[in-house]
Design a protein around this nucleic acid. Structure first.
Length: 345
DNA sequence: AACGCGGGGAT
DNA sequence: ATCCCAGCGTT
């Protein structure tokens, strides 16, 4: 009983995770979302008409798992500093990581610089036009490829981020939230909503709608222009039975990795004009289980020794710190020269 | 399919 | 204390 015949498929369509949608509903939803978007959209700078494809790409990478409100100031700095792929390609990676600041998932900054190098060196500085080509670049998956192709190049793609998935699932499947990750079936199903013309307005609009109205928590159903036809609303807005597993933070490797990165960023920040600073001795990290030699600490800028103390506060286990430093090095987020550790090249 | 990866603001 | 945010790459 592994296959399901076409008749079984038809008879169980009502229970399908992606139910059939009437044409009239598709058109109504399109019109409503696009009209809503034209008056309610946030004035995000990367939506300006003169924004380059590169700038759009940067905004999308920065926005992966990071709220737009935190992205905007970083994006402005980056565009001022590195307005083209060639600019970022030539930048010291240490400076790239430092400028990433606290957006989270700093590996994204590494992938973004790698992508910039491919674009600058192999693609004559031109951001790829199609989603298929974009997806070959490091750090660009199905969402980002579709988004850049649609927003920067006007290709008719199906943009399927967490917002779009939630909006469509609620409207037509009556469920609270989508599955853990979208499959091809969901993308195919979602593609029917993307109009032939104004597809970028649909793509941006339905994303924005999910961010401002059909939100994950406390959705604004009272003012929602689609509540009349919303399957989730009709079903009494049931909460999903299984909650997504929530990731811990306090005490985790992630937190400790972040603290170690903070030390390296701090050392880098105070390294202007000096070769001695900009790096921290490996011993200072692994000695975290004991009292660090005060004379050694005095060699560091006070800001850096404060960050080091925070690492020590998080973990007194030199084995663990040593392991995480090894991970950071193999991830390309840190570099070792001799006994010294620093941000990479 | 499940996991690891950052960090912060809202509730 | 928990949730969630314009996901991606690896296993």
């Amino acid at each position: 009983m592994t296959h399901r015949t076409s008749s079984e498929s038809r008879s169980s369509r009502r229970d399908s995770p992606f139910p059939a949608v009437a044409n009239a509903d598709i058109h109504h939803v399109r019109e409503t979302i696009i009209t809503w978007f034209e008056t309610a959209a946030r004035p995000l700078p990367w939506r300006d008409a003169d924004t380059s494809a590169w700038a759009v790409l940067v905004s999308e990478i920065m926005s992966q798992q990071t709220p737009v409100s935190r992205v905007e100031p970083r994006w402005r700095e980056w565009m001022h500093k590195w307005p083209t792929p060639a600019d970022l390609a030539q930048a010291p990676t240490a400076e790239v990581l430092h400028s990433w600041d606290r957006l989270g998932y700093p590996r994204r900054a590494l992938r973004l610089q790698e992508a910039a190098r491919v674009i600058a060196e192999e693609l004559d500085g031109h951001v790829p036009q199609t989603a298929q080509e974009l997806e070959r670049l490091p750090g660009i998956g199905s969402y980002t490829a579709a988004a850049v192709a649609s927003f920067a190049h006007g290709e008719r793609t199906t943009v399927l981020d967490t917002n779009v998935r939630r909006v469509l699932i609620r409207l037509f499947a009556g469920r609270d939230r989508p599955s853990a990750s979208p499959g091809r079936a969901e993308t195919d199903w979602a593609s029917q909503f993307v109009p032939e013309t104004n597809h970028e307005k649909w793509n941006a609009g339905v994303m924005e709608f999910g961010a401002l109205v059909c939100t994950a928590r406390n959705p604004r159903c009272e003012t929602c222009p689609l509540s009349d036809m919303c399957a989730w609303q009709k079903a009494g807005r049931p909460a999903s039975e299984v909650k997504p597993k929530t990731q811990k933070w306090a005490g985790t490797d992630r937190q400790l990795r972040g603290a170690i990165m903070d030390v390296l960023k701090s050392a880098h920040e105070h390294s202007a004009g000096s070769d001695n600073f900009g790096s921290v001795s490996f011993d200072l990290f692994t000695a975290s289980i004991t009292e660090v030699d005060p004379e050694l600490l005095d060699l560091l800028p006070s800001h850096t020794s404060t960050k080091l103390a925070q690492v020590r506060e998080l973990s007194a286990d030199p084995e663990r710190i040593s392991r995480l430093i090894g991970d950071l090095i193999s991830d390309g987020l840190a570099a070792q020269d001799g006994e010294m550790l620093r941000l990479p090249g």
